[in-house]
Amino acid sequence: MKIPSITIPLKIKEAMCSPRLAEIAENTISAVAIETALKMVGRPTFIITDKKTDPKTKKYAAIKEFLYQGTCLGLYLGIVPPVKRAINKFIISRLSKNPANAESIDAYHAESKIASTARKAYRRSGSVIDRTLSSLGLKKNEVIKTAKKELLYAEKVLREKVADPSNPKMQLCKGSKELSAIIGSVVTLAIVAPELSHFIVHPMMKILGFDKKNEEVKSQVVPQVSIKA
């Protein structure tokens, strides 16, 4: 199926082609977190707009869904980073058994170490400059601003070098990181979160008074039904 070419504003084109957005889209954790946040909005909205269901039931189901997705998001962001690290450690240990992989693993570790040192240096230097200037009662001049920009640029270049998918030496470890994030996401969202959410969503629904209301609704239904009959 061919989609006819449409004239799209330059700003949108630039945003869609930005490397930052590509980085977010490629990063498993950020992509899944955004997707879960959208589910948190989309699903309750569709439940609320359903005209066939009873309004009280609708409200109950929508709030329960909102809380469930919110709990999943919170649990996901809390659990996935350590789970990912543990899985990645295991995958790297399996990969390093193959001597052909050793070179790229070493190269990746060396590059990522340089990048993390640069990141730390940038953060520290920024705060040191700010503190020194404020203690001397001076304002930031152009030289300092440019120096900070240069440091930021260097940090960015080093970070991108590690995350560069076209660099074959970086591909293996970057891929193992993404694979561990995918496995971690599946374990967290498909197994851990649904089970743990029971202990969070039900008490929250009770606090919000929804479980009581639901019981009242049920008890009210009985006489209404019998009179109609």
Binding site: A25, T28, V32, L95, L172, G175, S176, E178, L179
Partner: peptide
């Protein structure tokens, strides 16, 4: 694992994760 890691390192898409999560869910 080497092939999977190399493939994901070269090109990763959000679709892989969401489909995997949906299948297991």
């Amino acid at each position: 694992l080497t092939d999977i890691s190399n493939a994901l390192g070269a090109e990763n898409s959000a679709v892989y994760t969401v489909v995997a999560v949906a299948a297991f869910k």
